[in-house]
């Protein structure tokens, strides 16, 4: 599992935030576009792309994209 692809997949779930704004250290919940809907979308993306189930609690516990990546990686 590769962080660059993960960041791309993550960024893909946003429609109005430029892809260049996303790095491993992006605090995604501080983005204007972030909402409970985006949270559900990220969970669905992880399920579809990585076949890993993450929970609402995992998103809540994460600050950066790296944090989410680490959770997904640990469950592969």
């Amino acid at each position: 599992m590769d962080i660059t692809t993960f960041i791309t997949n993550f960024a893909n779930q946003f429609d109005d935030t430029d892809a260049s704004e996303f790095t491993a250290n992006t605090k995604f919940k501080e983005l204007d576009e972030w909402s409970s809907l985006t949270a559900l979308t990220i969970i669905a993306m992880v399920d579809e792309e990585y076949n890993v189930k993450i929970k609402g609690d995992d998103i809540r516990a994460s600050q950066t994209i790296q944090n989410v990546f680490d959770i997904v990686k640990s469950r592969l």
Partner: peptide
């Protein structure tokens, strides 16, 4: 429905 966190 575990997409929803305990706090939510």
């Amino acid at each position: 429905l575990d997409t929803i966190s305990a706090e939510d």
